[in-house]
């Protein structure tokens, strides 16, 4: 038997092995959702034919979600006055630095595409509203630029969305001192989950029948991918070294098992996938139950991974 006694009864260190509280999972969830919204609005804009008003306006959801998420990040900083320091440096070894810059790129790209996707009258409404803050002319200019470069912008928006989704996972996976996070599959896992929560978010609004069908298909694909990556992630941990095995046991028999399997795997992945399949096969009317389950599952995934990784 080995008994280790650390003579350091410091609340500042020992309780703070759990250094990241609610702010980080909230941000990772909103960031992932924004990534999914960006990817899907790009894909929707690549389709032929007319778009519903909901889809046109929902392109603005990505920057809004990112803003709320960044608000949570800001609350987590313990030296808030130095937040601007993120933008005086680019450290290529630090995913957090990549993320800080990706978040900045999200705004012009997603706003330009969202404005470009609006009709003339709608752009004028936005410009009139922004005019109250003295931003009418830049809004019109951004919209004109977006229309001019509509083709490329859709792909850039899709790329930035994918980068945002991937980075939220890589942020955790590069922190090698926390065994549960130490898997390269975290990036794809959070990207797939972000795509599915983004789809679920869009499904909460009044899409046209055709668009809903399109988004649902992407959601099913994303959920399928997420299940596959999750299985590979667990298999990778279980078959690695002792530290990884210990980390895997948190989810396979340890304290996080019940919440992980019930909230994430069953309620967040299996049930919505089944409901979506039934809805499309039996031509049932879609309800908000499925997207709400996906959103709750996506949030539970971030919450459990961030908390269990620090346990």
């Amino acid at each position: 038997m080995n008994e280790i006694d650390v003579a350091r009864h410091s609340l500042m260190i020992d309780s703070l092995l759990h250094i990241w509280g609610w702010e980080i999972p909230v941000y990772l969830f909103l960031g992932g959702m924004a990534a999914g919204v960006m990817i899907l609005t790009s894909l929707l804009m690549m389709r032929e034919g007319d778009r519903s008003p909901a889809v046109r306006w929902l392109a603005f959801a990505a920057p809004v979600l990112v803003t709320v998420g960044m608000g949570a990040l800001f609350l987590d900083l313990s030296f808030k006055l130095h937040a601007w320091r993120f933008y005086l440096a680019f450290r290529w070894t630090s995913p957090m630095s990549w993320g800080a810059w990706i978040l900045v790129v999200v705004y012009p790209v997603s706003l330009a595409l969202a404005l470009a996707g609006l009709g003339d009258e709608q752009v004028e409404r936005v410009a009139a509203f922004m005019g109250r803050f003295g931003l009418g002319a830049p809004t019109r200019a951004l919209s004109a630029f977006g229309r001019q470069r509509f083709e490329e912008l859709r792909w850039v928006n899709l790329g930035v969305g994918a980068a945002l989704g991937l980075y939220t996972g890589i942020l955790l996976s590069t922190l090698g001192a926390r065994a549960l996070w130490n898997s390269a599959l975290f990036g794809p896992l959070f990207l797939a989950s972000g795509l599915s929560t983004g789809a679920a978010f869009l499904m909460l609004f009044r899409l046209s029948e055709d668009e809903r069908h399109f988004v649902t298909r992407w959601d099913k694909l994303a959920i399928g991918l997420e299940v596959a990556v999750l299985l590979l992630f667990l298999a990778g941990l279980v078959t690695s070294g002792a530290a990884s095995k210990d980390a895997a046991s948190l989810l396979l028999g340890g304290p996080w098992t019940a919440s992980f399997w019930s909230l994430v795997v069953i309620a967040g992945l299996a049930v919505p996938l089944l409901l979506e399949t039934l809805e499309s096969r039996l031509h049932l009317r879609a309800t908000v139950v499925t997207p709400l389950l996906v959103l709750a599952g996506g949030f539970a995934l971030r919450w459990i991974m961030v908390a269990a990784g620090q346990a």
């Binding site: 260190i13 703070l16 250094i19 006055l81 922190l175």
Partner: peptide, 23 residues
């Protein structure tokens, strides 16, 4: 230059860092 983001604390295998009350 420190923003108090705590990424370094998460990355340290030794628990050698802490957040000073000043941030």
């Amino acid at each position: 230059k420190c923003t108090g983001c705590k990424a370094c604390i998460a990355a340290c295998p030794y628990g050698a860092r802490y957040v000073h009350p000043a941030g």
